[in-house]
Structure formats: structure tokens, C-alpha cells
């Protein structure tokens, strides 16, 4: 079996964000981390590989040279077998083009499972996995909190509104990871050393024979939403009830 798994970098959620001069993205000099949902996807890929002898795992990141560091340290150092960087300027890609790039890589690699995060915590679109599944004509199981693979099928429990849904998908399939899927492991020192020697390919978008490399959605500007102001601290429950009643008229 072969599993393709994502390694996308995102700005650190605790970083102070500043809007770039062109107004279309954030200033680039912030700390970056591996997208937390990709960590869950990588952990899931490793667990499936550990349970199924002969499984190859491949991490893919789309972005500039900096992205390579996240593929190596975030994925290969944890145990993923090899890495692929598809070079792209992150300003010029949207979810749809990312999905088409993934589809191009899938056609070269023929994996049985593509495991992505359910969302990227910068763009927060929650689209790429679903778009990819449709481009490939594959089944999907999104927002996974449990995955069992056996006999060419995956049984996936999904976190959905109202509870937990379980689906059985016939492989090949796209699965997107939710945060409760697993506890991502840390890279060991040995893992970090090994990662340096693992196979690593760099591809250009042009290598993938896509029919179209344009985007469909463009960010035209960013704004800062108006914040809330802190209100008052009440001294006890009685004052809280009185304020909620006569001031806020909320109860």
C-alpha cells in the first residue's frame, strides 16, 4: 500500500499578524509551524503503515523552499519514508489549484490513500481534500476521528454536526484528519538525523501536466474585524443576575 500525506506550513496561531503592504496577505516574517491538522494526518499515515507491512508513506508540500523544512522536520523526521516538494509561490495558489496539483502528483504516484488535514489554519477553507476527491473521482471521508484500514477498504468515523458518522470507503480514497484522530508523536533525534538522508524530490508545477494552472478564487484584501471591548467585572452572582436582567435584558 502507498499513502500520500500532506505537510503544509502555516503561520503560528499565537503570532501577532500584520497585514502586508499590498493588503492581500500577512507580512511574511512571522513564525511558521506545520499545520496542526497535517500533524494528525502524518500520525495516521504512520500508524496505518505500522499496522500494514510493506506500506510506503510519502509526504507532499506545496510552496517555496521554506516548505521543504516542514516536509523534512514535520514528516520525514517522524518516520514518513520520502518527501516531495512542489515548488509554487504561495501567493499564486488557491485551494482549487492545490487540489489539481495534488491530483497531478497522485497520477504519478498512484497511492491507495491520500491523507490531508481537514483544514489549513491560515486560510481556514476546508476544501482541498473534497476538491481533490472529486478531481480524482474517488470517495472521500472527511473530518476523521478514527480510521481502520483492511481488505482494500477504510472504515472511517467522522465528526459531524449531531454526532459521529461512520462510513466505509473502498480504496483508493481521500481522507481528511480532524484533531481528535490521534496524538501526533514527536520526532526523535535519530529520526531527525535519518530525515536528512531520506529521498526527497523537487517538482515544478509544469512537471505535472496540468491542463490549467490558474486560480479561481483570489484574496483582494484583508481587514481586521472590529474587536470586542472588555466589559465589567461583577462582584458576585447577585450582581450578575441583576445586570443580566436590567442592563442587558438577556434573561
Amino acid at each position: 500500500m502507498k499513502i500520500l500525506v500532506s505537510a503544509k506550513r502555516v503561520s503560528d496561531p499565537n503570532a501577532k499578524l500584520a497585514i502586508a503592504k499590498d493588503g492581500k496577505w500577512i507580512e511574511g516574517d512571522v513564525e511558521y509551524i506545520l499545520n496542526p491538522f497535517c500533524e494528525n494526518a502524518i500520525e495516521a499515515a504512520l500508524q496505518i503503515a505500522e499496522a500494514n507491512d510493506g506500506t510506503e508513506t510519502v509526504a507532499i508540500g506545496i510552496g517555496d523552499d521554506e516548505t521543504a523544512r516542514f516536509i523534512r522536520q514535520g514528516a520525514l523526521a517522524r518516520g514518513i519514508d520520502r518527501g516531495i516538494l512542489v515548488s509554487a509561490e504561495e501567493e499564486t495558489i488557491d485551494s482549487d489549484l492545490i487540489a489539481r496539483i495534488y491530483a497531478g502528483v497522485v497520477h504519478r504516484e498512484s497511492p491507495d490513500i491520500v491523507l490531508l488535514g481537514k483544514q489549513a489554519i491560515d486560510g481556514d477553507s476546508n476544501q482541498v481534500g473534497q476538491l481533490l476527491a472529486e478531481y480524482l473521482g474517488w470517495p472521500q471521508a472527511t473530518f476523521a476521528s478514527k480510521i481502520e484500514v483492511a481488505d482494500g477498504k477504510a472504515i472511517v468515523t467522522r465528526e459531524v454536526d449531531g454526532g459521529l458518522e461512520t462510513l466505509e470507503v473502498t480504496l483508493p480514497a481521500v481522507i481528511t484528519a480532524d484533531l481528535r484522530l490521534n496524538e501526533p508523536r514527536f520526532a526523535s533525534l535519530a529520526g531527525i538525523m535519518k530525515a536528512k538522508k531520506k529521498p526527497f524530490d523537487e517538482l515544478e508545477i509544469d512537471d505535472l501536466d496540468l491542463d490549467d494552472t490558474g486560480t479561481k478564487v483570489q484574496v483582494v484584501g484583508l481587514t481586521t474585524p472590529s474587536g470586542r471591548k472588555a466589559g465589567v467585572i461583577v462582584k458576585d452572582v447577585e450582581e450578575l443576575v441583576q445586570k443580566l436582567r436590567s442592563e442587558a435584558r438577556a434573561i
Binding site: I121, D124, S125, K216, V217, T223, P225
Partner: peptide
Amino acid sequence: GMASDIIALTDSGAFARPMWAGNLTGNVKI
């Protein structure tokens, strides 16, 4: 093209959507 989770239609006809956990609002065009 798809815009996710939109919270407003702006005067210029763009779709406003929260990004970075709602710390910034992106105006996107399809």
C-alpha cells in the same frame, strides 16, 4: 471557484470570510 464560510457580501461584491481563526477577514473574489 468556491468561497467557504462567508460572513458578508461587501459593497464591491466581494465575499468576506474569516481567516486565521477569525483574526483577519479576507475579502475574496471568485
